[in-house]
């Protein structure tokens, strides 16, 4: 399990990285951020990029910035290289505490210390916590390409299994959360701690939205969602080895209810606290 050979490039800036991606477009370049999924896949030789463009040394890509919008609402900007652990430990205020709390579902400590928010979103696993959170909270993904920066709504970002709206020469710079979600939660089920979820569910009581992972090839957002039964019954599921459709549907029903209950309980804690 040793990776195939590649040429290594250390980008000094986002612009440098974008330039390398454009220049090497024909030779399967790949961005290296935390590498917690990519390097594992390279060791299995399931991913074999010809070039690795390492952005981990690019200054300014890690960090969380809080600001206030024109309407007085809190805005959170999470740099692409911010680690899961940094988010877990950060005080994001009641508006975005859901993000910190959700980090307990991301792998284990040594994965959280290296894995990054941007890398997770770019990898686009349909059960990954960041993909679900971004969709649930209508986050915007800021990407820089040869033509400059653009913002992509999370709802339009995830196109299919491990497939996103990013152009091959675009680099995620940051994720913007500009809609506070003080009454939101994410919960999951897996047989074993730290695994990718069989089903994950997030709920935002303020918008009434629910997001589900593990039920389709991309995170499934249900706006103005009904009861857990209604949501679960509407899913298009097939039997898979070890996971019959009825079981997955049942998990969805349970987890939606639990995400909502956790979101409600969080609010009570805050108001009691």
């Amino acid at each position: 399990m040793k990776p195939a050979t590649f040429t290594y490039h250390r980008a000094s800036s986002v612009r440098d990285a974008v330039g390398l991606l454009s220049e090497l477009a024909e030779e399967e370049p790949k961005l290296l951020a935390g590498g917690q999924s990519l390097v594992a896949m390279m060791n299995y030789r399931m991913a074999r990029p010809g070039h690795l463009v390492d952005i981990t040394h690019v200054p300014g890509l890690a960090g969380i910035r809080r600001s206030t919008g024109d309407d007085g609402r809190a805005i959170l900007r999470i740099g692409a290289l911010t680690t899961h652990r940094a988010v877990e430990k950060a005080d994001l205020g009641p508006e975005f505490a859901v993000l910190s709390r959700a980090m307990r579902w991301v792998g284990h400590l040594p994965i959280r210390t290296r894995g990054t928010v941007g890398g997770s979103i770019a990898h686009a696993d349909a059960t990954a916590e960041w993909c679900l959170l971004a969709v649930l909270l209508d986050a915007r993904i800021v990407a820089e390409g040869p033509a400059g920066r653009r913002e992509i709504g999370a709802g339009e970002f995830f196109l299919g299994p491990f497939t996103t709206a990013l152009e091959p020469d675009e680099v995620i710079v940051e994720i913007v959360f500009d809609r506070p979600a003080p009454r939101a939660a994410l919960t999951e089920y897996a047989d074993r701690r730290g695994d990718f979820a069989v089903v994950a569910a997030g709920a935002d009581l303020d918008t009434g939205s629910v997001v589900l992972g593990g039920v389709a090839t991309v995170p499934q957002l249900v706006r103005a969602a009904g009861t857990p039964d209604e949501i679960a019954d509407a899913l298009d599921l097939r039997d898979e080895p070890g996971v019959p459709a009825a079981y997955r549907r049942g998990l969805a029903r349970t987890l939606v209810a639990r995400a909502r209950a956790e979101a409600a309980a969080t609010t009570e804690e805050d108001s009691n606290g």
Binding site: G35, Q36, V39, A40, L109, P110, I111, R114
Partner: peptide, 27 residues
């Protein structure tokens, strides 16, 4: 395991535990 799950290769990188099998030394 060389895919980041068993943790036998855990080392500290700038004080934080990390999987040495999921890092290239050059990084």
């Amino acid at each position: 395991c060389e895919h980041g799950i068993c943790g036998a290769c855990t080392v500290l990188v700038d004080g934080a535990p990390a999987r040495a099998c999921l890092l290239f030394a050059i990084q």
